[in-house]
Design a protein around this nucleic acid. Structure first.
Lengths: 250, 250
DNA sequence: CTCTTTATAGTCGTGAGGACTATTAGTGAC
DNA sequence: GTCACTAATAGTCCTCACGACTATAAAGAG
């Protein structure tokens, strides 16, 4: 295998005695939100080849002086129009580096998951033909290896709901326990018993705390629900386990 | 900041209309094992500047046609001298992309954790002055940002012990429950009750199964222990939670 | 008012798991 | 041999987490 380093100038030059190939580094974003009780993903329609006209995860190149995290935050702001909103949860998912994942060249992509409480309509700016919230559908074809990235993101978020306070990242600053339960039910695709869910959440120290002012959410049907806000804890002890994926043989 | 793309030939040329910087992509490996009941890390002594003479995690450049996973496996084989041994657990940790993490140039590094049952002495080949197993010590200075990578690896492995069968990756093909318990106690830095640990492990379907032949390990002091091998399960239900890091206020 | 809807309160029984004791089966000292 | 020591294994007891379930409260719709 021959080195192609000879084509590289500037800071690449003279890196000890190693041979290496320069890579393009990008970020891909799996931005999830809840709309009308359903999980939605932010997707962009590609305007250029390859995969022109197909849906893809938003993302872009990491700039020379950026970390991947910074690039992801910038791309998210550019695509959705919201600049570093409070309640934004951004987390590195993993890195995808298969040699042929981009047919043009060697691209290594650092994938992130982002969770948003409300869903402002994105304005598809820049390179994308349009950007839209679309219902999460594992069967929807996407450009590149984005189907896999999105599936990994969904799996990761689902797992994190068990052990972290991540669910509040899907909720507005003040929320009801019913809304919080909807997060779990929607992401996990299950239904939970409401009194038991309430007992578990309130018994977990630091998960949620009553919103100040004893505010209550009225306007809907039924008894008004008390409002809560995210607590100070970051990890959940004990964890809130989803119903066993494997049968219970015992 | 100007693009330095103009110095790039070959597949980098003419990538749409974007300006991007070529990055060097490396892998770093946090290789953990148990020796004499203590957690050890595989470290190499750097032979060149920067950080010449300092300890660092093994790693190296991703080759042109390699994925990061393939590169990690190759580097591990090169550094430790063991070629794709059975029982090798390799997993992507995360990617470190701070702009100045390498003083010479822009290097994005994909970090992996590798778990080994036995610890063959490494032969420090190639670029490293020497390679050795050293006791895990979060306070040991390391080159680059490797202290953080190693700490992240330790935290990740500790968390994974709770929900996965990962502990068997530290053990030889056949092991006693005492050896398995030592894995948990060493990585978590706690002591566990032996009968309770035994009950939990045996009650978890697919975690371990008796080794064929009703073999027993003798030679040590005390009653000989039965031998087990890793089961077919990959996830642990229910999880084997470590003693609560936060106090139990309830 | 009555029905429906949703939030909240409480009850009961099973079982997981922490703390603990007892027994078994080996080695090494004497 | 036998006695101490060590480690594996078996079993007990008690608390509490949690699933399943019933009951009550507080709103809007008609």
């Amino acid at each position: 295998m021959t080195s192609i380093t000879e084509g590289v100038d500037g800071p690449m030059q003279g890196y000890d005695k190693y041979a290496f190939e320069p890579f393009a580094v990008t970020v891909d974003l799996a931005v999830l939100t809840l709309r009308a009780g359903a999980l939605h993903v932010l997707l962009v329609e590609r305007g250029q080849e390859p995969y022109a006209g197909q849906w893809a995860l938003p993302g872009g190149f990491v700039l020379p002086r950026e970390s991947a995290e910074t690039a992801a935050r910038r791309e998210l702001a550019e695509e959705t129009g919201l600049s570093d909103v409070s309640g934004l949860h951004l987390e590195q998912l993993r890195t995808y580096s298969e040699p042929d994942r981009d047919p043009r060249m060697r691209v290594v992509s650092v994938a992130f998951t982002a969770l948003l409480p409300d869903a402002p309509e994105p304005h598809g700016g820049g390179d994308a033909a349009q950007a839209r919230w679309l219902p999460y559908d594992p069967a929807r074809p996407l450009a590149f290896d984005h189907v896999r990235i999105l599936a990994d993101a969904h799996e990761r978020v689902g797992a994190q709901l068990e052990y972290s306070c991540l669910a509040t990242a899907f909720c507005p600053p003040e929320f009801t326990l019913g809304e919080l339960q909807n997060v779990y039910e929607t992401v996990w695709g299950v239904t939970l018993d409401r009194p038991n869910f309430r007992r578990k959440v309130l018994a977990t120290p630091g998960f949620v705390e009553p919103a100040p002012g004893a505010a209550r959410l009225t306007g809907g049907r039924g008894k008004p629900a008390a409002l809560y806000r995210a607590g100070t804890a970051t990890a959940l002890h004990p964890p809130l386990l989803r119903p066993s994926r494997e049968g219970r043989p015992a």
